[in-house]
Design a protein around this nucleic acid. Structure first.
Ligand SMILES: [Zn+2]
Length: 368
DNA sequence: CAAATTTGACCCGCG
DNA sequence: GCGCGGGTCAAATTT
């Protein structure tokens, strides 16, 4: 009872909290020593070791892409984990038929040009839950063996022609792994920013039915967000063409980059369950073991990094506008009769370190 | 050929 | 000590 009340309170608080505020805070991650890998490069601390990779050819089946079904794109969900109080998180779910969402949907249709999902105007991106979900799907569903891409009809003309593969968040990522988590119910993809030496990583997760999408950002970009000419162009075009205003007006959207209320309907805590300060040691240790490159400068000086989860991810450039590259993937489907899936190490050692000064209650989880 | 993904194997903290 | 769970690695593939 008490707990419920508490949650209710928190929920109400959340409703009042400006979405942007949350996101902004959430993006203020703590810098830390990094041990990242980008493409064939490995970055340890300030060092940069490049590891060349070979190439090969063949075709591999991947039936783990069911969740990319376009029909799932219709579901709108937003998950934002904010460490409001502490390294706890809050999950927000958007109302599917909220005016804003509807407007966005209409706006999309209105877009004659099949603008890449990544190229929508920023203010729209920031609240386009539906699109966000879409993007998630795409993000998690690279071309399948059937060479088919399950993109929404609105975005068929995909990013392949955009200057890069930036996600809505404005950054470029490289996938480096994918796993089934939570009893295999949810596929989770791991991405890291492709920017050299950038420590930021993010994990994207969606439920089987595609209703819940979560994005967890970890780390802090140490570089500016790459610009998106295409997006800017599309935005300006429309804006200058008067249609922009019309639409914005019609749907009561704020034409400026000001705040747009996110239709929140539910909130729940997400406990990490691993909020102990243990990463510092374990991380460097693990690295020492793992690093065959002989890096030992991994001073994993970690301080608790709150966790941020948001399906708005790609829709909120201000938060993560960096570039990422995929550099791995995990099996999603039941490895039929296949050997037990190997476990995966958990490194999300989050600590309960004090919150950042500036009242930075944010959300992020420590990055190792 | 290079860059990006896919994937099964690894690693490791934790219960 | 054992196994699970989750994050990464890195060779194999795909683009
Ligand atoms: Zn970055």
């Amino acid at each position: 009872m008490a707990v419920s009340w508490f949650f209710l309170k928190l929920f109400l608080f959340t409703l009042k909290t400006d979405y942007y505020q949350i996101m902004e805070k959430s993006m203020r991650w703590k810098p830390r020593t990094i041990v990242t890998y980008a493409g064939g490069s490995r970055v340890c601390g300030d060092q940069f070791t490049v590891v060349k990779k070979k190439c090969a050819r063949s075709s591999v089946e991947n039936e783990n892409r069911d969740f990319t079904n376009p029909k799932n794109a219709s579901s709108i969900s937003i998950a934002v984990v904010a460490n409001v109080i502490r390294p706890k998180a809050i999950r927000l779910k958007a109302v599917a038929n909220h005016p804003t969402v509807v407007a966005l949907k209409a706006y999309e249709e209105h877009q004659q040009i099949l603008v890449d999902a990544h190229s929508l105007p920023q203010e729209l991106n920031q609240v386009n839950c539906n699109q966000s979900t879409l993007n998630l799907h795409r993000s998690l569903s690279p071309s399948s063996n059937t060479k088919q891409r399950h993109y929404s009809s609105n975005y068929v003309n995909d990013s392949k022609k955009t200057e890069d593969k930036k996600s809505l968040d404005g950054y470029k990522w490289r996938k480096y792994g994918q796993k089934r988590v939570k009893k295999g119910e949810f596929p989770r993809a791991y991405y890291r920013c492709v920017h050299p030496a950038c420590p930021v990583k993010k994990t994207v997760e969606i439920s089987k039915d595609g209703e819940i999408a979560e994005i967890i950002y970890r780390g802090d970009h140490d570089h500016p967000k790459p610009s998106s000419k295409l997006r800017d162009k599309a935005f300006n075009l429309d804006r200058n063409g008067s249609t922009h205003e019309k639409w914005m007006q019609k749907f009561n959207l704020d034409g400026n980059d000001s705040h747009i209320d996110i239709p929140t309907v539910s909130a729940s805590f997400i406990t990490d369950g691993r909020e102990k300060a243990t990463e510092s040691v374990t991380m460097s240790q693990k690295r020492k073991n793992d690093d065959k490159l002989g890096d030992s400068t991994v001073a994993a000086k970690s301080t608790a990094i709150p966790k941020l989860m948001s399906s708005i991810d790609e829709s909120h450039e201000a938060n993560d506008g960096y570039s990422w590259q995929k550099y791995g993937k995990k099996p999603l489907a039941e490895p039929a009769a296949s050997p037990v899936l190997d476990g995966v190490r958990s490194c999300s050692a989050t600590s309960s370190a004090p919150l950042p000064p500036s009242g930075d209650v944010s959300l992020c989880r420590h990055l190792r």
